[in-house]
Design a protein around this nucleic acid. Structure first.
Lengths: 205, 205
DNA sequence: CAGTATTTCAAACGTCTGTTTAAATCTGGA
DNA sequence: TCCAGATTTAAACAGACGTTTGAAATACTG
């Protein structure tokens, strides 16, 4: 088990927060070190340089985020569960909420690590969802409709994580409490299940 | 009519490209001036400072982007039209494709201008879509379901603009040609119309 | 304890970048 | 042509930032 109170661990922790807040390029080493209660030179001593620290932070974010749950209930129920979990995970106010914000920054301003992030953080969930969707549609998992429907669902969920600052301006009454998120998840689920059925019917013609 | 070959106009043009590429904070004045074939001091002479230039660029982006079309066809047809236009507009390879990328950067790392951007670039489209959706649902435009469904649709469309670099990694076969975009638009439309119907039925109980 | 390796620290270095300055150049009117 | 204002230019400034350095402090080992 890794210790998490030595300088190296504190740096990763602090760097995760800062990188998630302001992105790689805008993150200041002096800021990170101050939060980690470490000297400015600590980053270079423990990691070599800023980019290597970032890579290390990503590895931790990926590790934390990869606890994807599965089950073998009927597909429709699993979809509801999947949506709820994904939505909660993306909007969880608890630490570390790194992952979502890191991804946002990676999309706005990709670093060389984007490939790894996608493959390790996103691909597993995407493939799982696509399997689920293909199951409901009754098509193979690599069918075009499976991709399209999977993205329709991901798009809706991700919207509430990534577009949050915009959503709250457009619709100030919306809250992001656990209850409200569950309501949103149910909305997305029924909306999407109906959409899936429509696509399925279209497919069968 | 504004001239568009003097230094001031060239600066706005160049700055739009650079800001959209790398975001406000990462954009270098020297880079902008080089593209505009102007001296480093030109920005400060013509606009005062970097932030005022950015504000000016946003005003132009907003102006360009605000050509939202309306019609009085039946609601379902208008939705299809709306989705297609929105999706095309966000993925249009033609210049200026500033707006979408600017928004992405604003979300990742908001500047004080975010409020203006939302109100002038997004709000009109959002209200239009919400009206449309409320019409189909048979509820008032400020009904919770209208908001939720509008965001379900926006989320799907925006996904293909903002998540593009991720999508192409998850699903390399997908193209972003006009044809393909129209296909996607049709998918989102049928998917969403079915979703809307489901929500409507749920509402009527 | 002595001696070696590891870790921390304050200070400084070199570069990048937004901004300023003051001279040079251009423009349009008298 | 001459002048006044507007515009452009090269150079420099000042602060921020990633990185390096060499010494001091700490931990480990025989």
């Amino acid at each position: 088990m890794e210790p998490n109170d030595d300088t190296r661990s504190r740096l990763i922790q602090a760097a995760g927060e800062v990188f998630a807040d302001v992105g790689y390029r805008e993150a200041k080493i002096r800021d990170i070190c101050a939060r980690a209660d470490a000297n400015v030179a600590a980053v270079n001593y423990h990691f070599g340089d800023k980019l290597k620290l970032y890579t290390e932070v990503l590895r931790h974010a990926i590790y934390i985020e990869s606890a994807v749950s599965e089950s073998n209930a009927p597909a429709k129920g699993r979809l509801a569960f999947f949506v709820e979990r994904l939505l909660r995970g993306m909007n969880d106010p608890a630490r570390p909420a790194w992952a979502t914000r890191l991804m946002l920054h990676e999309m706005a301003q990709p670093t060389p690590s984007l490939g790894d992030v996608v493959e390790e953080m996103i691909r597993p969930k995407y493939d799982l969802l696509r399997q689920l969707v293909a199951n409901i549609l009754g098509v193979p998992a690599n069918h075009r409709s499976a991709h399209l429907c999977a993205h329709s669902i991901i798009g809706q969920v991700r919207h509430y994580a990534i577009g949050r600052c915009v959503i709250t301006r457009l619709w100030p009454e919306l809250e992001f409490t656990t209850d409200s998120l569950d309501q949103i998840a149910r909305h997305i689920t029924t909306f999407s299940l109906a959409g899936l059925n429509a696509i399925k019917k279209e497919q069968e013609k």
